[in-house]
Write a protein that binds this DNA or RNA. Structure first.
Lengths: 167, 167
DNA sequence: CCGGAATGATTTGATTGTCGAAAGACCTTT
DNA sequence: AAAGGTCTTTCGACAATCAAATCATTCCGG
């Protein structure tokens, strides 16, 4: 009684279409924002990842699904603009720690991210229960999508180590 | 009691974090799938757009937020692999209609799209009311995001013309 | 302690994506 | 038929991206 097979598929289709629209809208917005900033989409992604704390090329690579070679090239460009800085690990000198410079932090901060701005504006217009529903649904969706691909998950593996242990 | 300013912002933050996770997961999934298929992410996007029916480079360009020059290059590569075909408009010979070949359709059909597969599987597990809620929420979100950027909308402007009018 | 396997990052070489500006082809209007 | 507009492509330049090879370092078995 909870709906026959037909109804399910139809709903699934509708949901998927909506999801695709969301993805396309944000993709376009991201590209446009990136270009306005003088960066590229990928560079922006890396910067945002770094905002969560210092990491290594390997972790970045795993976190955003690009090869290490690509990440190295991206960091080259970001470093050339003074937005990030490389620092060799001290206990393990194979590792390289990438960190935002103050300039990089400032750039990120000065960038409302379009998506973020639009979202917040519109989100604030919702009734309280709608907000709650949306958060719940989105988090549910995160779980659904991550179920299919195990990775894309743990980016900060060293987050709970004390600073002295990090290198 | 519908929540003060603090609660709102907190919820907004949570929602945005979830949204970002969704975007990242799908982005990574898309890249991986594209690579497995021997295509690129952008090429795949164009193919999927074409699955909704024949269009022109201009419409594709507007639909996915890339310049016409880029779209031309993408179509060049897709055509070289025999996945799409170009056809000049007959009434207006400036236009070029791009269409999937049978090979292109077959490729798309043989590709569960990972995202699509995962989503359908997980979606089917939800209770009926949860499905309904998710569709409603996602469509609401589409509206919210499109509010910020007018474009990214009408892709198929000729969908309701009869075939004979299409060229 | 030594030497090979493992690990993390970079380099190299090649293809593709991407843009802006200019050119080409075609339509429309006057 | 000339002028101006629209749609697509071409061109030149730079960035993204990968796989494979290389470099530097650590780790481990003996």
């Amino acid at each position: 009684m909870a709906g026959g097979a037909v109804e399910r598929t139809e709903r699934g289709r509708d949901a998927l279409i909506a999801l695709r629209r969301i993805l396309r809208a944000t993709e376009i917005g991201g590209r446009r924002l990136a270009r306005e900033t003088g960066l590229t989409s990928s560079q922006l992604t890396v910067l945002r990842l770094l905002a969560d704390g210092e990491t290594t090329p390997g972790a970045i690579s795993a976190g955003i699904g690009l090869t290490q070679a690509t990440v190295t090239a991206l960091i080259d460009r970001l470093a050339a603009r003074g937005l990030v800085i490389r620092r060799r690990g001290e206990s393990d000198r194979r590792r390289v720690w990438i960190d935002l410079t103050e300039e990089g932090q400032a750039l990120l901060a000065s960038m409302p991210s379009d998506l973020q701005a639009t979202f917040h504006t519109e989100f604030a217009k919702l009734a309280s229960w709608e907000q709650a529903m949306m958060v719940a649904t989105l988090e549910r969706l995160v779980g659904m999508l991550n179920a299919g691909q195990l990775e894309a998950g743990p980016v900060l593996e060293f987050g709970d180590l004390s600073p002295s242990e990090r290198e």
